[in-house]
Amino acid sequence: MSHSESHSESHSENPKSAYDFWERLYVPALIKGMAITTRHFLRNLWSERDDNTEVLERKTQSLMATVEYPEQRVPYPTGYRGKHRLVPREDGKPRCVACYMCATACPSQCIYIEAGEYAPSDTNTASRVIEKYPTVFMVDVLRCIVCGLCVEACPKDALRMDTSVHTSPELERKAFLYAKERLLAGEPTQHPNDPWRHRKSSDEPLHAHKEAHTRIGEDP
């Protein structure tokens, strides 16, 4: 017999067993409840208040657990998901290549992207190499549920929520549609396998001997 069965059965046999005589008298419990409230009242009234933001580490007798937010702030945990940002490359353009992975993963469908192509003659090396970029990248943060799946989905480390910043209050609905310019913020990031670090454009690199065998693993 499982636990839940025995639980319900014992109650159906003797429904009054949950409360004994003292509990059914109520008055002692009422008085005790008031005593508890008064104890809290006096303790909080009489003892000094400790406003350490780590509530569990507060030292004094006072039981007040309040953290007064704008002045005091609890440090965010390391995994905190803040405002979205588009990670810039070293040259200030977004790392994003408009692969739509974030928009695909987004359960609230709050990301909208339109893709464009960098011209083969672009003056920027990285742009010449990666070809594709978002002409429009919008996050509707009112729709966003801050699940972070877009960050997980991003194959290019181009979208992060590491800002530890909340979505700021706005007066207009349209101000919550974050466009590319607003999203592009924070420290530029580069990775060793970024394609533009290995070639100058999307053309074939000029080898002295194209046919000379470059084995896989060797730098051509």
């Binding site: 636990h3 639980h7 014992s10 067993s17 949950a18 002692p28 419990a29």
Partner: peptide
């Protein structure tokens, strides 16, 4: 007398936990 003599534990006893867990 009623207040002072009521058994303390009865107030804190969780309802339905009287039986030992199987």
């Amino acid at each position: 007398i009623l207040i002072s003599s009521s058994p303390k534990s009865s107030l804190h006893k969780p309802i339905g936990q009287n039986e030992a867990l199987p």
